[in-house]
């Protein structure tokens, strides 16, 4: 059984502290689930600085992934034909997740230390006025493709990226598919049956019966 992740709360707390001492008040929030994982949120202008600090001072030498989250609830709902769902007014307020946040778009990345095997999730608020952050390519070379994907899917620019072009979509494609306000047309045309299997199984009563 690995020892690193069982009693690692101190380890993860220390990680946050060390990152805070490295980048100062650019670290604006953190969230710790004991023994599971840790989240930190940094200011967007300190994105590369935080990456350098993670790599050089915290020993996070393994680049896991980089992506983004659009926290706006989808204006199209879940496009589900759910007969059980009571018709509720959709809540359009933007609520960010762990480690808080202020903007609709958040960058999300994960780096791990290859020696202690402890990783850290790092987020950054990207203001909608200027969807640009500094690229991580000089810090983690592997961020290249991930930033291309994020740029393509969310429209977040990465300043200093050597080769920002489409990864999956045709070059002339317009729109950013993973944004919540990008409609999933197939779903709008024909809603997914959704939770069709709502009738209880024969001999089973109630909704909270376990199993299938």
């Amino acid at each position: 059984m690995p020892t690193s992740e069982l009693a690692s709360d101190h380890l993860r707390e220390a990680l946050v502290d060390r990152l805070r001492s490295a980048i100062g008040d650019a670290l604006v929030g953190s969230h710790l689930v004991a023994g599971v994982d840790v989240w930190v949120r940094v200011r967007a202008d300190a994105w590369r600085k935080a990456g350098l600090a993670l790599r050089d001072q915290l020993g996070m030498d393994y680049f896991c992934y980089l992506s983004a989250i659009d926290w706006m609830p989808s204006p199209f709902g879940r496009s589900e034909d759910d007969p059980t769902a009571e018709a509720t007014e959709r809540d359009d307020t933007i609520r960010q997740g762990y480690a808080g946040g202020e903007t609709r778009f958040q960058l999300l990345a994960r780096v791990v230390s290859s020696s202690t095997h402890v990783g850290i999730n790092i987020k950054a608020d990207v203001s909608e006025d200027d969807l640009t952050v500094e690229s991580w390519v000089p810090v983690y070379t592997g961020a290249n493709w991930h930033e291309r994907e994020t740029w393509e899917m969310f429209g977040i620019n990465f300043a200093g990226h050597p080769d920002l072009r489409h990864m999956y979509l045709p070059t002339e494609f317009e729109g950013f598919p993973l944004r919540k306000d990008f409609p999933l047309l197939a779903r709008l045309v024909k809603p997914w049956p959704g939770i069709a299997d709502v009738e209880p199984m024969p001999g089973v009563s109630g909704d909270d019966e376990g199993g299938e």
Partner: peptide, 19 residues
């Protein structure tokens, strides 16, 4: 082979990374 889970699964608010 199955724990007791509700028939319609609603996952509480949160974030998780599992690899």
């Amino acid at each position: 082979v199955m724990a007791k889970v509700p028939r319609i699964i609603k996952v509480p608010e949160g974030e998780a990374w599992v690899s």
